[in-house]
Design a protein around this nucleic acid. Structure first.
Lengths: 333, 333
DNA sequence: CTGAAAGCGCTTACAG
DNA sequence: CTGAAAGCGCTTACAG
């Protein structure tokens, strides 16, 4: 690997001139610039990242914290990770991916060793243990998921409350008076997955205004429990429509419906909340609120990049709830 | 952020002594060591990663190259990424995740800027464009997937040839004489996904030794084409058993079978090749060869760590094919 | 058992 | 328009 010194010698200039040619931070005569450029090309020179980080206090790396919970359905995570990685690269950043169980400790380590210029937290919980660490570190952070005290950070999430209302409206308009609601597992509520109760509570409230009766269940996330529970719920014949806010349950639903000979929407109306990608992978024929993981991920990167570029800029942190949209796949009547 | 200088001053020693206390590379008197340790704790000191990398020429970061192809089913990728990330952390390394389309360019960039100590390539193709870059760089690499010329690298993959034979044996033993084989998409063969033909060709060859007739199809990977094709194939009633080497097709199969009233194994025997995790996520009730993505990922990390620790050690690169094992889920008779 | 100093490869005020 | 030099925060021979 050649260094900036090698380039300078070859081009017959000083190291500083090469550096400035690279950064464009001062004007270089055309002739000198060309000599430098050919030297760089011939030597295949790329600045050493560690040296540059040391000199500039910038690593051009973003720490991405991915959490996997037993009580959640893992395939959904990739839909956030890929757009984030792409958006980061477009902005000139690489992604250091952290999957450690001990998030706070890992955050502390990345921050104090200055390995990253900023971090993105995925799947943030209401009383997320990583938040206290975030408040103390000098690097900015943005997050997907709503914490109890979002102040000071750029927070992005789907508007789950509006989503719950929207789906209930959808069913109310079609005359449904008794609805089955399947939520995430109870444990998700307990450990502070705010999306779970934000969606459920608003759906229940909206149902009340319509006088709709709701039968609510905590859904399972692992087979064979998922199929067993779906069958039990269908056996009970509790309503003319179902709202499913649970990836594992809705992924398993088509085969259960088939096996029971239940036709959608003729025998039962079904709506859900999942991303277009997820729907395609699992061939889900259900009308649903689009969860837009790509948009959430890209927004998180964008906000973070703005803060990393201009740490002084105390521009008010954004708390952005993406408005839900319904993708009608014809599964209601 | 405090530096080693701050620690040294507070402990009343020199910077070098602090550094040696940290690395344990020379004996420090008990008293001095304790003063240093308390100073480190009080200041919450963590060595600056960039400075350390510059001084040692080691970043303690592994570059992980993840490729997503249109012709493949994406949810499977996570099963490799997570075990790799965990194994890397256990060995003291962080993961820089690269998802760029232009793999060779990204590899060049990481290597020449010395951002990583080594790389892992996932989903390697037969004539992978990243290989030529790998040969020129000074960092070691290991890979999952079989390239045309694996020499010089640590390569790990499932033994797909043995897998094809194993499944054909399984069906032959149960008396099947006419078998449907569904492979990856044709495009996977064309772009050099060696796992595709290694599996198919050995299955066909083994069938020939038994005198079994095989109807082979390139499977689709996107809905609604997947369901349509499955229905066409089932309509044709070509055999008493199916071998499916295609994640999207086998994930969609249960609902198609249900909708047609085909019972497994009474009406049709089905075997596949997928990981336990994948089977659980998609609730697949099919006997299958276990693809062991976690083992492959961990082995790749292990081999890479060995080489990173001891670059001189020209120990012969390993080409390891993991022996397939069948997980019997009772879907054959 | 410990310290002073060189060096890793950059960037950027300071000077001309 | 360009160069010499200090400095970023570590590690590690060299010396004692």
């Amino acid at each position: 690997m050649s260094t900036i010194e090698d380039v300078a010698r070859r081009a017959g200039v000083s190291r500083s001139t090469v550096s400035y040619a690279l950064s464009g931070k001062r004007t270089i005569s055309r002739e000198t610039r060309e000599r430098i450029e050919t030297a760089i090309a011939e030597l295949r020179f790329t600045p050493n990242a560690g040296a540059r980080a040391l000199a500039t206090s910038q690593t051009m790396v973003i720490g991405l914290f991915v959490q996997f919970f037993e009580d959640e359905f893992s395939p959904a995570m990739l839909q956030y990770v890929l757009p984030i990685s792409d958006a980061a690269r477009e902005a000139g950043y690489d992604i250091l991916m952290i999957t450690e169980d001990n998030g706070p400790k890992a955050l502390e380590r990345l921050s104090s060793s200055e390995m990253v210029d900023g971090v993105i937290l995925l799947n943030v919980a209401y009383d997320d243990q990583r938040l206290p660490v975030m408040r103390k570190m000098r690097q900015p952070g943005s997050m997907v998921g709503l914490p109890r005290e979002p102040d000071g950070f750029d927070v992005f999430d789907l508007d789950f409350a509006a989503s719950g209302r929207l789906l209930m409206d959808h069913l109310a308009q079609r005359g449904h008076r008794e609805v089955i609601l399947i939520t995430p597992r109870e444990h998700v509520f307990e450990r502070g997955g705010a999306y779970a109760w934000r969606f459920r509570d608003s759906a229940l409230q909206q149902a009340a205004t319509y006088g709709i009766r709701v039968h609510s269940f905590f859904g399972e996330t692992q087979q064979p429990a998922v199929n067993r529970q779906l069958n039990e719920i269908l056996d009970a014949q509790l309503g003319s429509a179902m709202i499913i806010h649970n990836d594992a349950m809705i992924a398993a639903l088509p085969s259960v419906l088939y096996s029971r000979g239940i036709r959608v929407p003729d025998d039962l109306s079904v709506v859900g909340i999942f991303s277009e990608d997820f729907g395609r992978i699992f061939s889900l024929p259900f009308t649903a609120v689009e969860t837009s993981p790509d948009k959430l991920g890209r927004n998180a990167v964008q906000a973070l990049v703005r803060r990393m570029l201009d740490p002084k800029d105390a521009e008010a942190p954004t708390l952005e709830f993406i408005a839900p949209t319904i993708m009608d796949r014809g599964s209601t009547r």
